[in-house]
């Protein structure tokens, strides 16, 4: 049972509001080490400079979208096992299927609750303490 506080998270979303909301939710769950990136490109740079245990990423972002980020993460050995949770709209079924193909760990359909997000993360890491 991993401690939420020992899991580092990178939140990737081009919207400041969303990042703030997700950060807020993660804090409520008990995460402490939370970083943010506004697009896939920044996220990848960030991860290569300092790996994270968990990436929570939006799909549609400028420069490099969530799917491209996922593929890039999976193709960089040091960070290829980073847990990747994709945020997605309900309408994006095909997108999720592609993300699954590229090895996404889990996905979370927007809109979601704090508990919903927690469940999704726990499905990857096991129950959080």
């Amino acid at each position: 049972m991993p401690q939420a506080s020992s899991i580092s998270v990178l939140v990737v979303d081009d919207q400041l509001t969303m990042r703030a909301l997700i950060r807020n939710a993660l804090q409520q769950i008990g995460f402490k080490d939370i970083r943010e990136a506004p697009d896939g490109e920044e996220a990848l740079k960030n991860l290569l400079a300092k790996p994270a245990n968990l990436v929570i990423s939006d799909f549609n972002m400028p420069k490099m979208d969530g799917l491209a980020l996922l593929r890039a993460v999976r193709s960089h050995p040091p960070i290829r096992q980073t847990a990747f949770v994709m945020l997605t709209g309900r309408a994006d079924r095909e997108l999720v299927q592609r993300a699954v193909q590229f090895g996404v760990n889990n996905y979370c359909v927007k809109p979601f609750t704090v508990q919903g997000l927690r469940d999704k993360i726990e499905q990857v890491f096991g129950q959080l303490t």
């Binding site: 991993p2 790996p51 847990a83 096991g126």
Partner: peptide
């Protein structure tokens, strides 16, 4: 809701650390 089977993929922090 999205209409297909999917099992979340589990991972542990230790496995990740070993990679790094």
């Amino acid at each position: 809701d999205l209409g297909f089977d999917f099992q979340p993929m589990t991972i542990t922090i230790d496995e990740q650390a070993a990679d790094v």
